[in-house]
Design a protein around this nucleic acid. Structure first.
Lengths: 241, 241
DNA sequence: CGATCTCTTGAGTTCCCTCAACTTAGGTGG
DNA sequence: CCACCTAAGTTGAGGGAACTCAAGAGATCG
């Protein structure tokens, strides 16, 4: 059965059975990674492309003053940059938030995949455009939204992404992230995240617990955030001529 | 003679004479665009790929409350997304800041370029990774830097990019952007941008004038910003095997 | 059963915003 | 060539959203 990575790519472009089995082969071997483990660190020379099959990770950077800023979350099915091998040096780190299962695809194998399978290339481009859309949406949030809108918007993003890969069952969804991770994602302090989380809880949108947040009223979050999911590009054109 | 776009791609990968002439052909026709003109608007169905050959533009989004947030600046040599044609709909607009000259490359021509010229593909991937690095750096700035650091950091980014395309002569460099554009790029108000600009002027880093900022002491800016240009990936690996 | 991490709450502070008024530069048309 | 208009920039005063500092309560784990 196809894993989450393949599943995700299939949502972006039609893949042939041949392409699917090539992807299955490429991601057949995976490692289990404990929580809070760096998959790659800032300054490292990039190695193979890797793909998160289970669990959550995030991109981050530590500033000279010791503060941390996250720039993205990787959920099951998400990959690091496909062309990571071009870079001389990583400008940020990637670290697991939870226990995870990660597959790696060597440079040669990657080249072979993209060279022989136009559907895979197409799907990966679409995934990359979506990732850029998410980065831009973060910038918009950080620049022009209040703290409660920012938090609600991020949770909406994670909710929609989770739903689209089928890990948000019957409307509810558990996000396995601590409040300090939310704080570092949103450019806020943990103290303030805590107060804003309480507001969302009082609004009936969330249930809080240690190390995780359960979304119970996505509609309310969407209203609070002013969320418009267009930027996630669920709809892409079919293979342009 | 090669234009800025070709010039920029050549800095990312070695191009054959054949590839260079293919690019020259593709960008031979260009239009002059007045300042403050949308090249494409949020909600539009994407058209051809376009490339800014002269002048400055920016990506932006207007929020329901009427505020604006910029997500990137396009300088001479910069292109919109290469795979823009995949998307069903733009999630942001792109608008000129100054008078500009813009070339467009049709979908078919683009496909042909990338299909037959591995050097071009390589260079475009590298350019794209750089763009993503810039997006991530903006997130870091907005999340974890003070207003003076943020402003200085943005100006450093623009300065380094300008220098790398050869439009920053003898150390000095004129940025043709108004303070309100800086404000919308940094998630600040024009009032506060003005006050922070004055601080940088008093520090001897800048000379201010109507509609533009002249960088006179880049080193000082780097110190104030805590700027590390690694993320701009000036160094990429030569063609991996 | 201390050690550690996460969360919570309170009190005081500060950075940046809001609101408002005014200046200056450029452009345009009478 | 002046009168007017608009966009850009400047400055001041007051306010508020989010931060800092601090202390403590609950979980989880070796």
């Amino acid at each position: 059965m196809a894993n989450r990575f393949i599943h995700k790519l299939m949502s972006f472009a039609a893949l042939t059975p041949d392409e699917i089995s090539a992807l299955e082969l490429a991601t057949a071997f995976s490692r289990r990674i404990p929580p809070r483990t760096d998959l790659i660190r800032e300054g490292d020379r990039p190695g193979p492309v890797f793909v998160v099959l289970e669990g959550w990770a995030f991109r981050y950077k530590i500033l000279p003053n010791g503060t941390r800023q996250l720039m993205a979350f990787l959920m099951p099915g998400d990959a690091c940059d496909l062309h990571i091998g071009i870079l001389a040096e990583m400008d940020h780190g990637i670290r697991t938030a939870t226990a995870a299962r990660v597959a790696t695809i060597g440079g040669g194998q990657m080249t072979e995949l993209m060279h022989n399978h136009p559907g895979i290339v197409q799907a990966m481009y679409a995934a990359q455009l979506t990732d850029q859309g998410i980065l831009r949406a973060w910038i918009v949030s950080m620049g022009r939204r209040s703290s409660i809108e920012r938090l609600a918007h991020l949770i909406c993003e994670l909710y929609v992404r989770a739903r689209s890969i089928g890990i948000a069952e019957h409307g509810e969804f558990e996000i396995p992230l601590s409040q300090s991770i939310f704080a570092d994602a949103l450019g806020m302090t943990t103290v303030h995240v805590n107060r804003v989380m309480q507001e969302l809880r009082l609004a009936g949108a969330l249930i809080l617990s240690r190390g995780s947040v359960r979304v119970v009223d996505p509609i309310k979050l969407v209203q609070i955030a002013g969320f418009d999911e267009n930027y996630l590009h669920r709809r892409v054109r079919q293979m342009p001529a």
